[in-house]
Amino acid sequence: MESSAVTSEIRDKRAALTDNTLNQFKELRNRFLSFKKEKYLQNIEHYQSLSQNQAPKFMVIACADSRVCPTSILGFEPGEAFVVRNVANLVPPHENGPSETNAALEFAVNSLEVQNILVVGHSCCGGIKALMSFQDEIHSNSSSFIKNWVIVGKTAKLKTKAAASNLDFDQQCRQCEKESINSSLLNLLSYPWIEERVKNGLLSIHGGYYDFIDCTFEKWTLDYEGSSSKADGSCSIGNREFWS
C-alpha cells in the first residue's frame, strides 16, 4: 500500500500536470483564434473551396521530428501538399504490406493524382541514429516498435557502413540520413501504380534534406530511366539544387 507521502507527491504531480496542460491548450486556443482572424477570414473563399475538394500537387513524406515541419520550412499553404509523417521519413517497400504510409501513398497517387512525391529527411535524425545504433540482426518479433519500424532503412544502413566505415558515428549517421532518402525513393518504385505514373511522365519523385543547424535545404530528383537500368539497385538522381 502506498504511503501517504507518496500519495501526496503523486497528487501534486497530477495537479501540476493539469495546470501545465490547461496553459498549453490556452496558448493553442490563442493561436487558433489568431489563425482564424488573420488567415481564414482574410481568405475565406479559398478555405471554403477547400471544404469541397482538394487538389494538391505535392505529397510530402517527412519525419515526425518536432523540429522538422514541412509546411513551415517549405511554406506550403492549406490545399497544396498532402503530408504524411513518420519516424525517419521512411517508405517501406510494397512487399512489406500495409502501413499508414503506403495507405497515404495510395490515396495521394491514385485518388488525388499528385504530380510530385517529395521525401524530406533532416539533420540530427533520432530515427536514423537508432537505426545505426541497433545490432545488424533486428528480428521482426522484437518488442520494440521503433526497431520493427526503422528496419525498413536497413539497406541504407548497410550501404553507409560499407562506404563510410572510416568515419565516426555522427558522420555515418549524417550520411545514412541522406542514403535512407534515396532508399525510400527506390522503394516508391516498388509500388506498381507509382512506377506506372512515373514511367508515363505523370509523376515525379524527389528527395530533400533539411539541415536545421545552418538552415539549408538540398533537393534532388529521381532519374527513373537511370535508376531502372542500374543492376546494383542504386539510385540515379539529377536536378540537384542547394538552397541556402
Results as ranks from 00 to 15, higher is better:
residue 221 T to Q: 13
residue 139 H to K: 14
residue 139 H to N: 12
residue 95 E to W: 10
residue 148 N to C: 08
residue 14 R to L: 09
residue 96 N to P: 01
residue 221 T to K: 06
residue 84 V to I: 13
residue 76 F to T: 01
residue 180 S to I: 10
residue 2 E to N: 08
residue 27 E to H: 11
residue 218 E to I: 01
residue 172 Q to F: 06
residue 226 G to T: 08
residue 28 L to T: 12
residue 82 F to R: 04
residue 188 L to S: 05
residue 8 S to K: 14
residue 72 S to F: 09
residue 222 L to H: 05
residue 153 G to K: 03
residue 207 G to T: 00
residue 40 Y to F: 15
residue 208 G to H: 01
residue 93 P to S: 09
residue 61 I to W: 00
residue 173 C to I: 14
residue 59 M to P: 03
residue 154 K to V: 10
residue 18 T to M: 10
residue 140 S to Y: 10
residue 154 K to I: 07
residue 133 S to Y: 04
residue 194 I to N: 08
residue 92 P to A: 14
residue 131 L to G: 03
residue 119 V to Q: 05
residue 193 W to D: 15
residue 172 Q to C: 07
residue 117 I to G: 01
residue 39 K to R: 15
residue 244 S to R: 13
residue 88 A to S: 10
residue 63 C to Q: 02
residue 92 P to Q: 13
residue 222 L to D: 07
residue 212 F to E: 08
residue 164 A to K: 07
residue 141 N to L: 09
residue 239 N to W: 05
residue 131 L to F: 02
residue 174 R to T: 14
residue 236 S to D: 03
residue 49 S to M: 07
residue 148 N to H: 11
residue 193 W to L: 15
residue 110 N to Q: 15
residue 40 Y to Q: 06
residue 149 W to K: 00
residue 180 S to E: 03
residue 7 T to Q: 08
residue 114 V to E: 01
residue 59 M to V: 10
residue 190 S to G: 07
residue 204 S to H: 09
residue 155 T to Y: 02
residue 104 A to S: 12
residue 35 F to T: 09
residue 201 G to V: 06
residue 146 I to K: 01
residue 154 K to N: 14
residue 94 H to P: 03
residue 82 F to P: 02
residue 106 E to G: 02
residue 196 E to K: 15
residue 69 C to T: 12
residue 48 Q to M: 09
residue 200 N to D: 14
residue 234 S to A: 10
residue 139 H to M: 06
residue 129 K to E: 15
residue 90 L to F: 07
residue 136 D to F: 08
residue 82 F to H: 11
residue 100 E to G: 14
residue 216 T to H: 11
residue 242 F to H: 13
residue 221 T to V: 07
residue 222 L to Q: 00
residue 130 A to R: 00
residue 35 F to H: 11
residue 73 I to Y: 15
residue 198 V to N: 02
residue 185 L to F: 04
residue 12 D to M: 12
residue 96 N to C: 10
residue 135 Q to N: 13
residue 45 E to S: 15
residue 140 S to M: 08
residue 106 E to K: 10
residue 88 A to M: 07
residue 49 S to L: 10
residue 51 S to C: 13
residue 167 L to I: 02
residue 182 N to P: 01
residue 49 S to R: 15
residue 109 V to E: 01
residue 193 W to F: 15
residue 220 W to T: 00
residue 141 N to M: 10
residue 69 C to Q: 13
residue 145 F to L: 15
residue 168 D to C: 03
residue 181 I to Y: 01
residue 73 I to C: 06
residue 195 E to W: 03
